[in-house]
């Protein structure tokens, strides 16, 4: 028996060399999008020989703000430390009054992203976005929306849709679920009027015909997706749930360039592209000043809509 344990541990040892180079903080519990992004980065960075060994550390809590705060305070000037984050963090920083924000770390690049999809159960009488908006205008309370956690991307998107349709965003009947999965079950079970989540969560159901896709939140039509954008449906809304990687605060320009080069090498590798395709993630690579400008814009618009929904005073 002992022998077997040794064999198995040895198998583990060969798969995972001891030297750590990068340490990636996933500011969430195992299983979520950030954790998966971090672990995919770990795999690709190691397999592509960019880093001999990568460790992933989960620091869960409060929409990533706990991990972010810990990361910013403990790693000042450490070029080997990385943190995964995303659009949800932008909202969480605002709703939780987090003392540490994305300004306190060094954003490196946007890696992947997902667009939001608005769906109804196949049995629903609502046929298109116009039908849904009509119902929303008539009685906002009668339209229940199932989506992810309060103040998250899904909630923000519903707020933006209501606002664009001329409905008071505080009047939306948004029902928060802990994850896309639970929300999907509620939609499939005909418990709610409509559902909103990232397109990937719904894709298989849409193909199987159990959900009807009304619109997507991308700025332009998506290839292979048979649905209008919100803009085409007459609502001036575009939302992307992006995920990014950031480095520690206080890096020199050379250090920052080195990290960016490593991450770019990873993101441009075939291996990474294959992983994205497997997981149904989009490559939305954006780095440097363009990324920083985009980030500023997102922070500003998010703060405004959270105020409108009433989540931020």
């Amino acid at each position: 028996m002992k022998h077997l344990v040794l064999v198995s541990l040895f198998a583990g040892a060969m798969a995972l060399p001891a030297m750590a180079d990068y340490t990636i903080i996933a500011p969430a519990n195992p299983g979520g999008g950030w954790d998966q992004t971090a672990r995919t980065m770990q795999t690709v960075l190691q397999e592509e020989g960019i880093s001999p060994s990568v460790q992933v550390q989960n620091v869960p809590g409060a929409g990533g703000t706990i991990g972010l705060a810990q990361f910013a305070s403990q790693n000042k000037g450490n070029p080997d430390a990385l943190i995964v984050g995303g659009y949800v963090m932008v909202g969480a920083i605002l709703t939780n009054n987090s003392p540490v924000s994305l300004k306190d770390v060094t954003p490196i690049a946007r890696l992947t992203g997902e667009y939001e999809a608005i769906v109804v159960p196949a049995a629903s009488p609502i046929q298109d976005m116009a039908g849904l908006i009509e119902k929303l205008k008539a009685d906002p309370g009668a339209v229940s929306w199932a989506g992810g956690s309060a103040g998250g991307t899904d909630h923000i998107a519903v707020g933006l849709i209501a606002k664009a349709a001329g409905v008071d965003p505080t009047k939306i009947n948004y029902i928060a679920y802990s994850g896309g999965g639970e929300a999907l079950a509620a939609i499939l079970g005909n418990q709610v009027t409509a559902g909103i989540s990232s397109l990937g969560e719904f894709e298989a159901q849409i193909q199987a015909g159990t959900l009807r896709l009304l619109a997507v939140s991308s700025p332009e039509r998506l290839e292979g997706v048979d649905a209008p954008t919100l803009k085409e449906a007459g609502l001036d809304v575009a939302v992307e749930n992006w995920r990014m990687v950031a480095a520690a605060p206080g890096l020199s320009d050379e250090q920052k360039a080195k990290v960016t080069a490593d991450i770019e090498k990873m993101a441009k590798s075939e291996n990474w592209q294959k992983q994205l395709a497997d997981k149904g993630w989009m490559d939305t690579w954006l780095a440097g000043p363009e990324f920083e400008a985009q980030l500023d814009k997102d922070i500003e618009s998010t703060a405004a809509i959270l105020k409108d929904i009433g989540l931020v005073k």
Partner: peptide, 25 residues
């Protein structure tokens, strides 16, 4: 349904995807 209903299930979903298995209806 491709519905991960627990943290364990969400990690497994990632695991299935590496085998090219797309859970769903």
């Amino acid at each position: 349904l491709g519905l991960p209903t627990s943290a364990t299930a969400a990690i497994m979903l990632a695991g299935f995807q590496q085998f090219g298995l797309q859970p769903g209806p």
